Amino acid sequence: MPLMKTHPIDDEFATSVFSVKPGLSSEEALVNASELLASASAIANEQAFAASGTQRLQTFGLAQIIESAGLLVNAALDKIDPASTQPV
């Protein structure tokens, strides 16, 4: 059986299946991160309400960490384009 040759770029991403689009702007990255965190928060909260005991507390703790990360991402977005977050 022939061995597959690897390309230099394959070695860079050996531990990751996904990569970030080259040229992705900071704003695009932060918007996507914000959306991912919102989804993770919804999942964690739903799981927490379905759980009990220490698992419930741990899942709520995870949800709080996710929410905190989302607040940081949104604060960074505000600094990139503060005009877009002002009430109309």
Rank of each mutant, 00 (worst) to 15 (best):
G23K: 09
L72R: 08
T6C: 09
L77C: 02
I80H: 05
A44G: 06
E27N: 03
S25L: 04
G70E: 12
F13A: 03
A69M: 11
A50I: 02
F13Y: 15
E46A: 15
R56A: 13
L71P: 00
S39E: 10
K79H: 11
A63D: 10
I43P: 03
V17Y: 04
Q64A: 12
Q58S: 09
S84W: 06
D81H: 12
L71T: 02
G53F: 03
L36F: 11
F49A: 14
A40F: 14
S68Q: 11
M4T: 10
N32T: 09
K21H: 11
L3P: 06
P8I: 08
F18P: 00
N74M: 10
A14R: 15
V17T: 07
P8S: 13
D10A: 09
L30R: 00
L71H: 06
I66Q: 03
L77T: 02
S19K: 07
E46T: 13
S39M: 04
N45A: 07
M4H: 12
Q47H: 08
G53E: 06
A29E: 02
A38Y: 04
L57A: 09
L71N: 11
T59S: 09
A83F: 14
F13L: 13
Q64M: 05
A51L: 08
N32Y: 05
T59G: 05
S19C: 05
L24V: 10
R56K: 15
M1V: 06
R56I: 04
D11R: 15
S68P: 02
E35A: 10
P82Q: 07
L72E: 02
V31S: 01
